[in-house]
Each structure stands twice: as structure tokens, then as C-alpha cells.
């Protein structure tokens, strides 16, 4: 197994209590692999400490991008959360810790 960080980059954003994570392969040829390996279910399980709500995944093939929206992910919301990283800005790197199968 390899870490997602080996083949992809990500940026975290927030809207209220929803965490938004984008995911892009360094090499566009790896995009189908990301679609196959990084499902909404796997992201929800991987981020179970943070995400209490639902994870939805959007595919944007023109940009070779995936976008995950994770509800109930930032405590009571950015403005009132007691978390050290209330915005969840560091959580892109939590996603990139996910393990996926090495190239077949």
C-alpha cells in the first residue's frame, strides 16, 4: 500500500460546518485510479475522527479532479469550534495519509 500523498495533492476549505477537500493526481494518468480507489465511503471511514455527517464526491473529469464535501466535520462550525485547527485547513493532509493499492 502507498500513501495518497505519493500520487496526489489536495486543498482543504470550509463552509460553516462543512469541510471541502479537493484531490488532484500529480500525473493525469492516475485520475482513473483515484476515481476507483478514493470513494466517498473510504473517505468517510478514513476521516471518521472528524466527519460526523455525510461525504459526497464530485468528479470533474475536465480538470482531472475529485471534490469531497464532508458535512458535520468542523465541530460546531468554524466560528465556535474549540479545535486547534477550527477551519480544518490541515485536513487536506489527513486525506493524503489514506493508503491505496500500488500500481497494478
Amino acid at each position: 500500500m502507498i500513501k495518497l500523498a505519493k500520487i496526489a495533492h489536495s486543498r482543504a476549505g470550509d463552509k460553516g460546518n462543512t469541510l471541502v477537500l479537493s484531490l488532484f493526481p500529480f500525473d493525469e494518468n492516475d485520475y482513473p485510479r483515484l476515481i476507483q480507489e478514493v470513494t466517498a465511503e473510504k473517505v468517510k471511514a478514513h476521516l471518521s475522527d472528524q466527519v460526523k455527517g455525510e461525504v459526497s464526491r464530485y468528479e470533474i473529469p475536465g480538470l482531472h479532479a475529485l471534490l469531497f464535501t464532508c458535512t458535520e466535520a468542523l465541530g460546531t462550525g468554524v466560528t465556535t469550534s474549540l479545535a486547534l485547527d477550527a477551519h480544518g485547513k490541515s485536513l487536506s493532509y489527513a486525506l493524503l495519509e489514506m493508503k491505496i493499492n500500488p500500481k497494478p
Partner: peptide, 16 residues
């Protein structure tokens, strides 16, 4: 293109 892609989807709840 990488910096632009990351920013395009920043804080976007639904790209459509």
C-alpha cells in the same frame, strides 16, 4: 495549472 486548480475548487460545495 496546479495552483489554479486548487484555488478553483477552494471552498466550493458543488462545482456545478
Amino acid at each position: 495549472i496546479r495552483t489554479a486548480k486548487e484555488q478553483l475548487l477552494y471552498e466550493v460545495l458543488d462545482p456545478g
